[in-house]
Amino acid sequence: MFQKMIDDSMKRSPWIFHINAGSCNGCDIELVSVLTPRYDAERFGFRLTGSPRQADIVVVSGPITLQSRDRMIRTLAQVPEPFCVVSLGSCPRSGNVFKGSYAIDGPLEKWTHVDVSVGGCTPKPEAIIAALAKASAILEEKRKAMRQADKADKEKRS
């Protein structure tokens, strides 16, 4: 009973954790502007957290530089399941203008699952809001699937 209540409330507050994997700061500024009064994503419950352990949606920006790669993987490992990964801008998916550079080790798909991607260099805040809404819908489905798997597992054991 409590589980359902918790799930319902979690649906309305997907918290975001932002990883900068060598981004030029353009996408980071746009992501922060999504939380400003003009676009105000907080009315849907999106909130930037400071810790990956509290995150539901992980937003990755930047072309995965060699310096940030290991730290990104370590951070992603700390995010509790289920979580969504959103790749922000052109860089994480392809490397953008840094494609083929010795200093980057992308794309992001190589290291983790990517649920929603936003194209653009940089994407507009409206596009980011649409992507986050999509990510939270996917997250809900993932959570549902996880609960069902848990239930099936419990029945099997008893």
Partner: peptide, 12 residues
Amino acid sequence: DYMIVGTKPEDF
């Protein structure tokens, strides 16, 4: 059109 949002590579 700036709504470049998708889940699959074909969307882009």
